[in-house]
Amino acid sequence: MELKTEENRMALLNDSFVSEVLLETLSKLQIPTYAQGGLKEKLAGRNIPLLELHEAEAMLKQGNCVVYSNAENFVPLLTSNWNDGGKVEAIKVFKNKFLFRKMLLEFYPDFYFKQIKLSDADVFKPVNGRKLILKPSVGFLSLGVKQFSSENEFKQSMVEAVGEISKYRTAFDSSILDESFFLIEDKVEGGEFACDAYFDENGSAVVLGIYCHAFRDENDFRDVVYYTGKKTVEEQLPLVRDFLEKLSRKIALKRFPIHFEFRVDSNGSLIPMEVNPMRFGGFGLADLPFYCFGINPYEYFLENKKPDWTKILGESNGNYHAFVLGRMEGVETPDVDKFKKTFGKLSAFVPLDYKKFPVFCTAYPESGDLNEILKYVYYDFSSYNSTV
Score class of each variant (00 low, 15 high):
186 D>F: 06
189 E>V: 13
129 G>F: 09
151 E>F: 03
186 D>W: 15
130 R>T: 06
198 Y>T: 07
161 A>Q: 02
190 G>Q: 05
189 E>Y: 14
187 K>R: 12
132 L>E: 05
145 V>W: 14
181 F>W: 14
145 V>E: 13
182 F>A: 00
194 A>D: 00
191 G>S: 15
144 G>C: 09
160 E>K: 11
199 F>A: 10
166 S>D: 10
194 A>H: 09
157 S>E: 01
141 L>H: 05
132 L>C: 12
184 I>Y: 11
182 F>G: 00
200 D>H: 02
168 Y>F: 11
149 S>E: 14
167 K>E: 02
183 L>Q: 04
146 K>W: 08
171 A>N: 07
156 Q>C: 06
187 K>V: 10
187 K>W: 08
177 L>T: 00
131 K>W: 03
139 G>R: 03
154 F>A: 09
161 A>L: 05
171 A>F: 01
193 F>W: 15
191 G>E: 12
149 S>P: 09
173 D>V: 10
181 F>K: 11
187 K>N: 15
180 S>V: 08
164 E>R: 08
187 K>E: 11
150 S>R: 03
186 D>I: 06
165 I>R: 14
135 K>T: 07
167 K>H: 09
189 E>N: 03
190 G>I: 12
197 A>F: 04
134 L>Y: 11
144 G>E: 02
148 F>N: 05
194 A>W: 07
162 V>S: 00
152 N>W: 11
130 R>C: 08
156 Q>S: 09
168 Y>I: 06
144 G>I: 01
179 E>A: 13
150 S>Y: 08
141 L>S: 14
197 A>C: 03
156 Q>F: 07
133 I>A: 12
186 D>A: 03
173 D>I: 08
141 L>I: 05
141 L>T: 02
185 E>M: 12
133 I>T: 10
137 S>P: 09
149 S>Q: 12
135 K>G: 07
132 L>T: 05
182 F>T: 02
171 A>C: 04
157 S>H: 07
132 L>K: 15
193 F>C: 10
199 F>S: 09
151 E>G: 09
167 K>A: 09
185 E>C: 05
161 A>I: 04
158 M>R: 02
188 V>A: 02
